[in-house]
Design a protein around this nucleic acid. Sequence first.
DNA 1: GCCAACGTTGGC
DNA 2: GCCAACGTTGGC
Length: 151
Amino acid sequence: MPAFWLIKSEPFKYAWSQLVADGKTCWDGVRNYEARNNLRAMKTGDLCLFYHSNEGKAVVGVARVVREAYPDPTASDAADAVDAAEEGGDWSAVDVAPHVALAVPVELATIKATPALAEMQLLRRSRLSVVPVTRREFDAIVKLGKTKLPK
DNA sequence: GCCAACGTTGGC
DNA sequence: GCCAACGTTGGC
């Protein structure tokens, strides 16, 4: 059984439409240990709710993990590499591809107003950019998005 | 633009 | 190792 996640991006930085245009992308630049651990727990085929933070504030699509965690290419330059070498820390990235766009974006306000979703990590750990989602929550979001998941 | 939450840093 | 200061994120 696949696991479910929610990944956040500011539309300004990397929007859902960009992911669709690119076909797939490297989800890198995560600089938080907990988020990194979540990235590393992802398996190929896991589904990720794609959330636009800050501007939009809604889940707009579902992405699929197409490559499991590997060293973050953006951590290999400049200060990050020095830090990683000195502190023994390192960063990870995964590749994701668009799976399906939600027919209707699921707004943060809607999530907050839905009792079944009140416990989402998105709400409780609002500053984490990669958080786990339960199957129940995932299904509820997709349903609110009036979307059928492709096989 | 402000503020709350929270992770990180640095002085001791 | 504690804790205050600081920086970043993200909602409003």
